[in-house]
Computed example of a mutant assay.
Amino acid sequence: MARYTGPKSKIARKFREPIFGPDKALERKNYPPGQHGVSKRRGKQSEYAIQLLEKQKAKYTYGVLERQFANLFARASAKQGITGEVFLKLLEARLDNTVYRLGIAPTRSAARQLVGHKHITVNGEVVNIPSYSLRPGDVIAVRERSKSLEAISNAVAGHKINKFSWLEWDASGLTGKFLNYPERTEIPENIKENLIVELYSK
């Protein structure tokens, strides 16, 4: 499946946020990329441009393609509650994102790779679909034969105590549990979901 494989620092600088994790290039050049750098004059952005930028930020952050993004938004719109918040909750419930949150992988792209290569199980069954939507109570684990993988061992070793209240983690068994959908205030990503809702409602 197509994924963004271009320069990540350029995207991080575009949004002025470490979207793909700590980035030294962003620290050195905390201004948008371009030939004229920080001195380039930029006119006032239109409302549409601001909304589109926020949508792109969410897509890059969670590693979701356009069609997946639109389908997920449609699902969120059909559910009860505030559409923007429901949408973020569905993004958080993706399997690849949860593998990343649990600390089994250092980045979301690494988590997608682990899932795609059949190293992850859900409720005891191997699942190789990164966009798989978890439900409260689902148990996520590293496949038995994959527990000795250096990439997983290094990620888990560097993982701090679980800081997400909607997830439960057992380091000894390399298993986690998706307890419930997180509240908006618990999701750390700096995304203005109301702008995405406004964009789709045009």
Rank of each mutant, 00 (worst) to 15 (best):
T5M: 08
G6V: 09
P7S: 11
P7V: 07
P7W: 05
P7Y: 04
K8N: 07
K8R: 14
S9D: 10
S9A: 13
K10Y: 12
I11G: 02
A12R: 02
A12T: 04
R13H: 06
R16C: 14
G21H: 00
G21A: 01
P22C: 01
K24Q: 11
A25M: 11
E27M: 12
N30F: 11
Y31E: 08
P32T: 05
G34N: 06
H36A: 14
S39I: 13
S39K: 13
K40H: 14
R42G: 04
G43M: 08
G43K: 13
G43Q: 10
G43Y: 13
S46P: 08
E47W: 09
I50W: 04
Q51P: 11
L52Q: 11
L52K: 11
L52S: 06
L52D: 05
K55Y: 07
Q56F: 05
K57M: 08
Y62T: 08
Y62E: 10
G63S: 02
V64R: 09
V64K: 05
R67A: 13
F69Q: 09
A70Y: 10
F73E: 11
S77P: 09
Q80K: 15
G81S: 13
T83F: 01
T83R: 10
L88E: 10
L88K: 04
K89H: 08
L90W: 06
E92G: 09
E92T: 05
E92D: 02
L95P: 03
D96Q: 06
N97T: 14
N97P: 10
V99K: 06
Y100Q: 06
Y100R: 03
R101Q: 09
L102Y: 02
G103E: 03
I104D: 01
I104H: 01
A105L: 08
T107F: 07
S109V: 15
A111T: 03
R112E: 08
R112A: 07
V115N: 07
V115W: 08
G116A: 14
I120Y: 00
I120W: 00
N123C: 00
N123V: 01
G124D: 02
E125F: 09
V126F: 02
N128Q: 09
Y132F: 04
S133R: 10
P136I: 01
P136N: 07
G137V: 07
G137H: 04
V139K: 04
A141F: 00
V142L: 00
R143C: 06
E144L: 07
E144I: 01
E144A: 04
E144D: 14
S146Q: 04
S148D: 00
S148N: 03
S148C: 01
L149V: 03
A151L: 03
A151W: 00
I152L: 00
N154K: 07
N154E: 05
N154W: 00
V156K: 00
V156E: 00
H159Y: 12
K160M: 08
I161V: 14
I161P: 08
K163C: 09
K163I: 09
W166V: 11
E168G: 00
W169D: 12
S172D: 12
S172E: 13
S172I: 05
G173R: 15
G173S: 15
T175F: 02
N180D: 13
Y181A: 07
Y181F: 05
P182C: 12
E183R: 14
E186L: 11
E186Q: 15
I187S: 06
I187H: 06
P188Y: 03
P188G: 07
E189T: 14
N190E: 15
I191K: 05
I191F: 11
K192F: 14
N194F: 13
L195W: 04
I196W: 05
E198K: 07
S201M: 13
